[in-house]
């Protein structure tokens, strides 16, 4: 695994360990044992792994909401101790404020930062344009479909113009058809926005379709990274790429790794 210095890397994770204290147990639960990886400029890195492999812990730690026990995390060269302003997060659930309009929801980070009303509405509107929801700016979240809510979720993450985008299983709750549409949409937006990103998912084909590199986490507890797969396909990638044999081959290769039991992996981290 390539591990360079933190200089100029959008995300650098070094020997990260995450532990939880569980009520009534003396020994802490080790969610993530020792994980190191980078996200380079302009790159979209996907992290896949079986359920319970500590993906959520990883998201919590990188976003600065969950304290980590060992190692370090850098987002744009700053050590993460609390939520980083350079990070935009797209959540698994849309997490929109139901009493605020779509526009106000997109602009929430600007409202928090006390950006003047006009500027924040302009910037939020530009984001809504990018995700194709300009006509829905004054609607309330409950008036939107699940797919549209996830677009708002994405627009909200981008409005602060963060260097790094952290996508935490953003399409997991969508139906298969909407999910594919959203993957294609994200592919386009990704080319437009020019960010660096970390995409957490349990859908291997989604990871292969969207990412430049796919990192495979072992089953939990005490997860480690067990493989790194480079995805060679040119961008922009069309959805029918998923039907190509080379694509399927990569998906199968990663699938084999994901299926390994924890004790079959060893401790070579």
């Amino acid at each position: 695994m390539t591990v360079s210095t933190v200089e100029d890397l959008p995300v650098a994770v070094r020997r990260l360990g995450i532990k939880y204290h569980i009520k009534g147990q003396i020994e802490p639960f080790v969610a993530v044992k020792s994980v190191s990886f980078d996200v380079r400029k302009g790159e979209l890195v996907a992290v896949v792994g079986p359920s319970g492999c500590g993906k959520s812990s990883l998201v919590g730690a990188i976003s600065g909401l969950v304290p980590y026990a060992a190692g370090s995390i850098y987002v744009t060269r700053e050590r993460v101790k609390s939520p980083s302003p350079h990070l935009g997060v797209v959540f698994q659930r849309a997490l929109l404020l139901p009493w605020k309009s779509v526009l106000e929801n997109v602009a929430i980070s600007l409202t928090i930062a006390r950006v003047p009303k006009r500027e924040r509405e302009e910037r939020a509107m530009a984001m809504l344009k990018m995700v194709g929801l300009v006509d829905f700016a004054s609607r309330y979240p409950h008036e939107l479909s699940g797919g549209m809510q996830q677009r708002v979720n994405l627009a909200r993450a981008l409005v602060r113009d963060p260097d790094v985008l952290l996508l935490d299983e953003p399409f997991a709750s969508l139906d298969a058809q909407t999910r594919e549409e959203m993957q294609e949409e994200l592919m386009k937006i990704w080319m437009l926005a020019g960010k660096s990103g970390l995409f957490i998912t349990h859908q291997i084909d989604e990871a292969v379709y969207l990412a430049d590199r796919v990192l495979v986490m072992s089953a939990g507890p005490a997860s480690i990274l067990i493989d790194e797969v480079k995805i060679p396909f040119e961008r922009p990638r069309k959805l029918h790429l998923k039907r190509e044999p080379e694509f399927q081959e990569l998906v199968d290769r990663i699938w084999e790794k994901v299926r390994l039991k924890r004790d079959e992996v060893g401790d070579e981290a």
Binding site: S63, G64, L65, P83, P85, L87, V89, F91, R93, L95, L97, I108, S109, I112, A113, R156, R160
Partner: peptide, 18 residues
């Protein structure tokens, strides 16, 4: 209150008052 909503706002920089 949905704690994930609280987490969301904290990620976007909200302080306790907000």
């Amino acid at each position: 209150v949905d704690q994930e909503l609280v987490g969301m706002s904290r990620l976007f920089g909200a302080n306790r008052w907000f």
